[in-house]
Structure formats: C-alpha cells, structure tokens
Design a binder for these strands. Structure first.
Lengths: 119, 119
DNA sequence: TGAACATATGAATAAATGCTCATATGTTAG
DNA sequence: CTAACATATGAGCATTTATTCATATGTTCA
C-alpha cells in the first residue's frame, strides 16, 4: 500500500498530493476577499429588499424608506454599502437623489439565489 | 400641478402611488429572509474558499483544513453553516466525512460574483 | 439670505458572527 | 473493549454589523 493511498488524515499523513493540487488552484486571496465582500452586500434582508425594489424601478431615498417601512437614516446607511460594492448608484435630481441598480449581475445573482431558495 | 407630480418627499407627501405599487410587488418577508440567509453563506472568505475547493473535487474535513491552512474546528463550524444552507453535503467513508457541493447553483452564483468583481 | 426639505454621516449600542479551546461523538483496528 | 483517529459542537471572546439618534451637508424657493 503506497503512502499516498493511506486513508489517514493527521497532520503528517494528509493526502498531500490532493492538498497541494487544490491549494495551487485556489484564486488569490484578494479575489476571494472581494468576492466575499460582494456577497456580504446581498447577505442582509434590508439590502436585499432595496435591490428588489430597484429591480422594478429607480427611486429616491425617501420613497425607498417609506416602501420598506424604515427610517431614512437606516436606508441611507445601507445604500452607502451597496454603493461601495458598486451595486447601486445615485444621481441627484433637485433635492432628491435617485438610486438605481448599477450592475446587471444583480438581477442574475438574485435570480440564482431565488432558484436555490425555492427548491 | 397635480398632487402626484409634487417633487416633495416628506412623510405626508411621498410619491404614494409609486410606494404602494412597489410595496405590493415585494416578495413575502420569508422569501427575502431566506434569500439573505443564503447569500450570507457566500459572504465570508473562509466559506467561499471551502466552496471553491469543493468546485474542484470532494474532500474530507482534514484535507480541507490543511488546504486552507485552518484548524479542523474552524472548518467544521463553517461546514455546518454551509450544510444548513443546503450548499454542501457530506457522506461518511470510514472515519472520514467527505464533503461535496450539494447544489449546482453554487457554481453559477460564484461565477456571477466573479464577473462583477473582475469588472 | 434664510427656511424647509432631502440625504449623508459620526457615535453609540445591541446583536450577530468567526475563531479558539476543550471536549463529545462516532468509527476502525488491534 | 480500548486506543487512536476524524469530525462535531458548546462556551467564551473579540470583531463586525445594523439600527438609532443627533447633526452636518447640500439643494430649492421665497
């Protein structure tokens, strides 16, 4: 029985070839971090609700707060995070700022998620 | 100038038609909560790394820990969350438990995320 | 310019989260 | 059965995070 076939898993006898191969195939830390940060933006129901609303139409902060039944401040804080993740953007129109989705991937990502959840 | 055209947004003069329409179109709270919970699973770089590894091949906990340079306990805790989200599953093989992806959506969701991040 | 409105933001707080450490559970070999 | 191994899990701790409250910034209109 060759060493690499040993079905043992302590720190000295791991399946070394497999581990080395997998470790080599992992994307760089930065990409993985960015990816996790992106999904973090989707990982809160307030932000999901904001993105859902924006999937339908663009809207000002105040109407968004009213739609979601939340304070203007809470919505504004979350919009900032979504903006940092480059998922939404806003343009000023007079006193208001109209927010809209900044990325087509939002729709796809949410749809994939919905499919999983509705299984 | 009709009332619904007023560009004012305080609590008494919101764009009521728009708000009502959007509020009516929102999915139920449970779906939104589940969706956020799903994305929360993707919103951590340890779990992303686990899923990346599992995209390549199934693997036991110990090799996974070695691949990621983490303790067995930390990996095991995260696997539990991924299992609860029905994203991974494990089968026992002797003393080991081999984990694998439980859902095809994982690949799609991660790919969409990567596209967004690499823009 | 000043008042009213719309949004943004800093500080504070409560809750959620990820990891570690110790230990429990479950499996196999002797 | 017992020892060794593989994994799971509870408690504790440090960090992150979502909301609130107060207030600052920026715009419009009179």
């Amino acid at each position: 029985m060759a060493i690499q076939d040993v079905e043992q898993c302590d720190l000295h006898e791991v399946h070394e070839d497999k581990v080395r191969r997998l470790a080599a195939e992992m994307p760089d830390e930065d990409s993985l971090y960015d990816l996790a940060e992106l999904f973090k933006a989707f990982g809160d129901s307030t932000r999901i609700r904001i993105m859902f609303a924006l999937l339908k139409e663009e809207i000002c902060v105040c109407d968004l707060a009213e739609t979601l039944g939340m304070t203007q401040s809470a919505v504004s804080h979350q919009l900032r995070l979504l903006k940092q993740a480059r998922l939404v953007a806003g343009r000023r129109e007079g006193k208001q700022i109209i927010y809209y989705l900044a990325d087509d991937h939002v729709r796809t990502i949410i749809e994939m998620g919905m499919e999983h959840v509705n299984e």
